[in-house]
Design a protein around this nucleic acid. Sequence first.
DNA 1: TTGTATGCGTTATCAA
DNA 2: TTGATAACGCATACAA
Lengths: 299, 299
Amino acid sequence: MEAAKELRYVPNQAARSLITRRTHTLGVILPDMHGEFFAQVIRGLDETARTHDHHVLVSSSHSDQDEARAAVRAMLGRVDGLAIMWPSSEHNLFADLLPDQLPVVLLLASDESTAFPSLSIDNRAGARSVVEHLLDHGHERIAILTGPSANRDAQQRLAGYRAAMRESGPGHDPILEIPGDFMQATGYRAVSQLLALDPRPTALFASNDSMAIGALHALHEAGLRVPEDMALVGFDDIPSAQYMNPPLSTVHVPIYELGARAVELLIHRTNRTSDTPQTEAVLPTDLALRASCGCAATE
Amino acid sequence: MEAAKELRYVPNQAARSLITRRTHTLGVILPDMHGEFFAQVIRGLDETARTHDHHVLVSSSHSDQDEARAAVRAMLGRVDGLAIMWPSSEHNLFADLLPDQLPVVLLLASDESTAFPSLSIDNRAGARSVVEHLLDHGHERIAILTGPSANRDAQQRLAGYRAAMRESGPGHDPILEIPGDFMQATGYRAVSQLLALDPRPTALFASNDSMAIGALHALHEAGLRVPEDMALVGFDDIPSAQYMNPPLSTVHVPIYELGARAVELLIHRTNRTSDTPQTEAVLPTDLALRASCGCAATE
DNA sequence: TTGTATGCGTTATCAA
DNA sequence: TTGATAACGCATACAA
């Protein structure tokens, strides 16, 4: 022991886990890494893992399938479990390279049945309720700024918007659907399209908060008041949302909890050989009503 | 090969690296994981690593020394190099548990000499120039909202503020230094202290953008116009800064490049046995003048 | 070309 | 209790 300290000995974790068959580490694959959304997820993952005496290894910024698959391969043998966030339609993308025994959880992957347990967000209900809120308060021409067309969450949020417009509003008009990609700069640019619509919409539903923040800035620059001239709502409830001027009304998504739940599910499966009771969970959303929709005070 | 595909064989990276002595992976230790600053750093690390055919393993949210040390130990044997961000004064915290051959780079650790190569930001010059900019445009009572007292960057930014106030301004007045901690909520709360000062300052320098955003919101709520009633500047130039209303004047920090440079340095050291030419670099900052300081137009 | 043995650093197993 | 040895999964060096 004294000699160990003298020589500054530190165990080689790779060799150790080879025989132990336990790494005390969970891997996380993220598609991208911009903005507060992902930072929040990682916090949830990391802090929960620490509770269970585990570490988290994150590999992010995978813009395409091959990169993500390479990242998964790089983790095999170094982790006890894997959380994969891949918010697109192809949900069996990793099935062929994952060992059977490895606990895996898919994040935001799909609402369809899949080979792996999955955690996702109730995007449809969230979008529906925020649009219905706008409808309830007199808005009829409500535009939506969509997310990437291949993104599962974006698809579901769009579906919720359409359902609300059809069933509780004036019906669904494709001209009101402005394509977006979840980026701030796109929210900024989309405002010119929004204002060119005739008659001009009275409310904008941005499919995430980043685009809402970009749009808010463009609306200010265009001399429009929010919410008087244009009501605005977002989706996600990232930490910055409440600090906007005006504070952004949005749909609260339990981002931190998404990460936390993922870790608990993985840890549970590493301990028990028996199957986990629940294999699929859809986390609920809440309305976070603030000033940007113009109707918080009347609630 | 066919059998390998049939059996869905995937190599065990731990076993592989044991004999190869190469993991093609770089480890990153981060103290915390909130906000866009860290997301940007990780992007820089990750994308640059991919360029060199490496992966990045991130372990974050280490609130104290023991957690950070445990994270370092968990990585030993699994990475070819280690980037450690530890923005406090104790810079030799990890020296005893790092093998001599392992390439290591310290991020934001110190401006003092250390056993490891380090990458940091020229906080002092950045703070100094932004405060001098305010002084040049007629402000005399300039308050500062500081960062955590143990944080190296915060200390240097405060030092730059003091130097500017002493050498180019009315002198340094401790009453104008409001303690903060880099969090948005603190920026929000600090405004009441700011407005209670008599005579009231005409400008506020927040030590980072998160606090500036919180302060901006509180100033709006208090009915003060920015920049007319209170000029406001931040530090970091996170992506959201330009989308504030008004857009936030701040000190641009090459956050992405910090991560990118760290990876290049580590990769270089894994390839060559000879020492790296430069062992310490201080990345320069730029003024990002926008509307919140009220003097961009006159530049 | 194909096959076989050795070693990477550690833990686990079994014998002494 | 202590000590020697096999084994984890793979890559490399060598023999066939």
